[in-house]
Each structure stands twice: as structure tokens, then as C-alpha cells.
Nucleic acid binder design. Sequence first.
DNA 1: CTGAATGCAAAGACTTTGCATCAGC
DNA 2: GCTGATGCAAAGTCTTTGCATTCAG
Lengths: 128, 128
Amino acid sequence: MTVRMTSARKAILEELESSKAHLTINQIHERLSGRLPSLNVSTVYRSLDFLSQNGLISISDMGVGTPVYEIMKEETHHHLVCSSCKQVIELENDLVAPFFEQIEKEKKTKVITNHLVVFGICLECKEY
Amino acid sequence: MTVRMTSARKAILEELESSKAHLTINQIHERLSGRLPSLNVSTVYRSLDFLSQNGLISISDMGVGTPVYEIMKEETHHHLVCSSCKQVIELENDLVAPFFEQIEKEKKTKVITNHLVVFGICLECKEY
DNA sequence: CTGAATGCAAAGACTTTGCATCAGC
DNA sequence: GCTGATGCAAAGTCTTTGCATTCAG
């Protein structure tokens, strides 16, 4: 079974790559409908399945109801999402890596959370 | 607008309390259909909304496709889910608390992740 | 009593699937 | 040219909603 890099898959990867964002299925479909007017939602579903199965993209739940998809990078990256204003704050790897190492050591597991999401209340929202 | 502790809401809370588990909407509905045969799924949806809005239960994504619901406890609790065999391993609070404290200090936020889920590969699955 | 919560059925949204056609390789 | 991927439409699943009825306070 040979794998084909089709225009749909390529377009999805490019969109996720260039936008560097977490996108929902519908956002991906909308954004691509300019370039690929006949692109069907079912193809987006199938392509996202394919790409995540093959480790090219990752899936996270950021608390918006549906999963979001993003390009899989070498570097892990992590976010703090404000439960109140939904703002996304970056958590530097230096902050998270020691925690993961600790888990791996104590639990003898390999952590593969490529994108950790922690929920909280941001500074601005705390003040009101 | 007065709040009513109805039999549906009470039954859901009791079920989550006694099972001490993460249950999906359907699991909750099934488990209660013995006690409340006429309980409708739509009531389960509405009740879970209500209970989570009011901080009595929490919602997490454990990677099973649908969210799971559980009783909100004073103590936070955290899990490592094996992406391969789906086994759930507890992460002691002692392991996680310092990490959250670090985030709160550096980001000046309040972390309210009551149930952190980290994905990984467990010891057994690593060996095969 | 009163109005919030429920049951029911219907609508809506989201996701998957079968099959003929298309297009990478 | 093969065969995997796509488009389309239809089916399936999950979730929400309107409305009459029920029941908690």
C-alpha cells in the first residue's frame, strides 16, 4: 500500500504550517476552500486522520468543544489557556521539561504529550 | 431563578461519587437507566451542563473521543494515560503540585486544572 | 401555586461510509 | 495502468431545542 501525497494532504499541511495555529476541522476546511473549491469535508476528515496516524500533525483539546489540529514539530510546545478569556499563553519548554522528566523517571514511562494544555485564570482576568 | 436539586441531578452526582470514575455521557445514562427508567439523554446533557457550570463536576478529555465527567473534589488528581493500551496511571499530587506552583509563579496566573492528563507510553507497552 | 426541570420528538450538527470517479506514482 | 484518494450523497451518530407536562420548593 503506497502512500500518496495528494493535493488535499499537501494543502492541509501547508495551511497548518504557515498559520502555525491550532485549527479545528471546520477552520481548516474553510481556509482551504479558496484554493481547493471542490474540497469535501469528508476528505478533510480522512486527511486529518491519515496525517495524525502518520505523526505529521497532532490533535489537542483546548477546551473549545472540538479538537484542534496542528503541525507536529520536533520541539514540544505547551500552553496555558485562560478559562475565562480563552487567551492562550505559552509555557516554555524549560518550565515543562523537568516535569515530564520527573514523570518518566518515577513512572518508568515515555511521555509523548507533544502539546500539554493547562487551564487557569490569567493575570488580567484575576484582577476583575 | 431558584436552583432545584432534582432526582436526575442527584442521581448523576451520586453515580459519579460512588463510582469515583471518569464516565462518558452514555455511560452515565446507561448506569442510571435502572434507577430512573424514564431518564432521557437530553436530561443527562442538560444536567451535566448545569453541574459543571456550578462547579460540582469537572470535564476532561482523556483521549477517548468524548469528554468524561467526574465529581469535583477538593483535592486535584492527575493521570497519565497510555496512548497505546489506554491504561490510566495516577500521577501523585506531589509530582504535579510543584509544576503548577512554578507556572503560577512565572506566569502570575492561577492554575485551575483540576485534572491534568498527560499522554505517554507505559512500561509494559514500551517493552513490546 | 409557580416556574424550573423533564420527557419526548423533531431538528440540527457533526462524522462516517459506500461507491463511482479521479489522479499519484 | 493500478490502486489509493477523493467527491458526492446518503446514512449514522451525537447533541440541541421547542413545547407540553411534571414536580421541587
